[in-house]
Amino acid sequence: MIKKFMYLNRKAPYGTIYALESLEVVLIGAAFDQDVSLAFVDDGVYQLAKDQNTDAIGMKNFSPTYKALGDYEVNKIYVDSASLEERGLTVDDLMPLTYEDEDDDWAEKPSIRVVESAELAALMEEQDVILSF
């Protein structure tokens, strides 16, 4: 049975452990061949920010791991447009996450799609399981 799983990420990458432990679930969950998507909302959009540097806070910079998601066939990554805008960010401030599309001669394609809140709500409505972190 294939279910639709959405991982909803709402918190900044550091300050709490939720972003890191969410990513751990996503990576383990990828082995289960479910229909997986990730959504980044509120301060969660900072999880995808480029050029993260954690030297001054003594924590592990785990942001490179997001770049591996494409290899795990996790390639539906939705970013809430309003959350970006409220924080003065654009998609160019985010890591360029990509995946290779096996149905299109392994062409490299962007995984991130910026969506309006209404579309995100519609996507949530389709899900069987939403895990919010």
Partner: peptide, 21 residues
């Protein structure tokens, strides 16, 4: 046990109910 047990619960259950933020 591992996180796979969480995913399995999501697959097997009719409803996965989450408590806490």
């Amino acid at each position: 046990s591992g996180l796979g047990q969480l995913i399995e619960a999501g697959i097997e259950a009719d409803r996965l109910v989450v408590f806490g933020d």
